[in-house]
Amino acid sequence: MTLTTHTPSDTSGTLDEALERLHSFGPERGGWLSNHAPMAVEALVRHGQAPAVHRWLDHYRQKLEDMPDPAVEVTPENWQEALGDPRRIADWAAYFERETAGRPWREVLAEWWPRLLPGIAAGATHPVIRVGHSVRTLLGAPEHGPRATLPAAPEHGPRVTELAHALGYWAARHQPLPPLSSLAPAADAAAALDAVAPVPDRSGGIRNRLDQLTAFPAWPGHAVTDPDTARARLEELVRAATHRYATYGYGEPIMLVHAATAPNAVLRTLPALPRELWAPSLDAAWAASAAVTAAYSPQRPAEPVPVPGGLSPEEVFAQAAAHGDDHTIKFTDTALDIGDATALTAALRSVELNPPAF
């Protein structure tokens, strides 16, 4: 698969075409595995790989399943009984399509974000990650860095529909964590992640593992109320989780990427949210990252593995894109948001650890 390191100035047409292709498919396959295509194609476009998007989708198409049949319409009156019911995936997608057709998408997001946030672990955190990618496309141009420039999305169109499907997936898979107590405080986010205790029984899937959670360590991000401080702490958490993958990712290379990509999805969403939602968003992001760490992190780090040095961020992403694995693409996208040498090392480790798609 031939890929490019060229960053186009406007690739929104490719992204919108790809999303339109995807919106007839459901958010899951094989019963509960997530459809990663909307997230992966957004990252590919953002990092200069738009010419490869449709070929990547042609390959990924074999994994996709049609959107399930609708069951019972979700309405403003009955939504609470439908929350967390995966049989209602199509109903929820249709509900949010109607909501975003009738109101500005930011208004819909602000209303539903605090309702959905307690269930951030839904679908192994894939729904919130999909929301984060979607919001980034809707906000338009990046804040910094050599990335593809997307104009701000209109109030209707494929990128708004993508947000509707992402929110619908989250609502259908909504899964609160069990009640958690606080352990001794840690000095920073990295120390807090190191202090997360592994769940005792790892014989089952993620839902079985999350049910075993009882307590997480506190850290300086705990009980933050100032929005700007909350954002800074969230950036710290994303950086710590990304760096940690470089030495702990070997334990569960696919699942552990979510310890970084889930809080980064929250971070990407903050600019579209009212500032009073930033602090509770930090709390939920920490819970998601700690939950994935507890469920999948190995007891001890591996010895650092030498990786090729001197590569630019664009060259690192090109390697991830050529590798083709959806989790690797999304994790490398998060690593480039961090952008330092350790983050790029972690991204290259994901290329080594995860099975290639091509």
Rank of each mutant, 00 (worst) to 15 (best):
T4Q: 14
A189Y: 06
P185A: 09
L15F: 00
T332M: 12
D211T: 09
G221H: 04
L277N: 04
P301R: 13
P146E: 11
P114F: 09
H144I: 06
A232Y: 00
E97P: 01
E155N: 12
P313V: 00
V266T: 06
H6I: 11
F216K: 09
W79I: 04
D85F: 07
A265G: 06
L19H: 05
I329K: 11
D228M: 07
D66E: 12
L15V: 01
V41Y: 14
K330I: 09
M255N: 13
S289A: 13
R275M: 00
E65V: 08
P154Q: 02
A93P: 00
G48A: 03
E107I: 08
A43V: 01
R88L: 14
N208I: 01
P27C: 09
P178F: 09
R159M: 04
T225G: 10
V307F: 00
A287W: 06
R147C: 11
A341G: 05
L344T: 05
V45L: 07
Y169V: 00
A246W: 07
A110T: 12
D340Q: 09
G48R: 09
A215D: 11
T5S: 13
E236D: 14
S9E: 10
D194M: 12
A272V: 12
E77V: 11
T149I: 15
H323M: 01
A110Q: 13
P68Y: 04
L193P: 04
G140R: 10
G13C: 05
A192P: 00
R55D: 15
W219S: 11
R115H: 11
E107Q: 15
E97T: 14
D211A: 15
L180M: 07
H156K: 14
A166E: 01
E77Q: 15
H144C: 10
L64V: 01
G13R: 15
R103W: 11
E303A: 15
N264L: 08
T75G: 02
A93T: 08
G102K: 15
A141T: 09
L234D: 02
T293M: 12
Y248Q: 06
G31I: 04
P154L: 03
Y245I: 10
S289L: 02
V257T: 15
A40D: 00
G84S: 10
L33Q: 06
